[in-house]
Amino acid sequence: MPADKEDVSVNASPIEILVKPEVSGVKNEQLIQTRRAQICDAALELFLEKGIASTTIRDICARSGVNQASIYDYIENKNDILRRLLNQLWFRPDVPTLPERLEAFGDADFEDILTSYFRDTWRIKRKGTLLAYRSIPHLQSDDRKAMRAHDTRLITLLARHLRERTGLPADDKRPEIVANLIIFLTAFGPMRDWVQRDIDEELMAGTIAAGVTAMLEHLKAQGEPPST
């Protein structure tokens, strides 16, 4: 299957690493889901407009239409809303990670896989990316640890694929450096779109993918790192 196939759900696995508290003030499950969706949609808009610290529960109630007296029947607090949004938008299962794509399309051109990955994550996970980076100072300690553990695991898996492609030895740390850079570049489109809105998305994704591919080709040709 070509790497730029529109179906991006291949090998995607649901990841919900931020623990959500049980809130059971209402027994009607359909009503719970409807109200939580209203609350989370309103909170996301406000978090991205005003910032997380500046957004109050009162603001969220006013934007969502959910009464302030009943909102705690559906969520525990603002941190609970943030967790639910990150699970929904940042850890969303319909956008495979780069290691998952490399596993599924290993024989495809690496640059094509990268281009598809950047395009899909920038386009589909844009709000999740913006929220994730803005939320770090506001996360609870356990949530911050879980986010770090998730990224560490992702970098480790990606570095393993890069090491296989370059033939670099296990004690060479350069694949981890490049893997970390790729994860950082995943946020490049959404975080910098305020200065590059006039640049074609496909051109930008292809250019960055070409740069990363050239970097790996250089490491592969260089072989063992020069001694220091």
Score class of each variant (00 low, 15 high):
D7V: 04
S141L: 08
P93M: 10
S116F: 06
I52N: 13
A159P: 01
S54A: 15
A187F: 11
L44E: 11
K20V: 12
I75Q: 04
K220E: 12
F110H: 10
Q38Y: 00
W122Q: 04
G51S: 07
R83L: 07
G25D: 08
L85F: 03
D143E: 02
H218A: 15
P225T: 10
S24H: 04
D142Y: 00
P99C: 09
R192E: 13
L154M: 02
R160D: 15
S9V: 06
L89A: 06
I177W: 05
V10E: 00
G65I: 13
L82P: 11
F110E: 07
D107K: 15
R58Q: 13
I182L: 08
M191G: 07
V66A: 10
R58T: 15
G106F: 03
A149C: 02
F105K: 01
D198F: 12
A179W: 04
S70G: 02
Q33L: 14
P169A: 10
S64H: 05
R63S: 11
I208L: 12
P225L: 09
L46G: 10
S64A: 11
T152D: 14
I75F: 04
Y72W: 04
E22D: 10
R165F: 02
K145I: 04
S70V: 13
V195M: 05
I199L: 14
I136R: 14
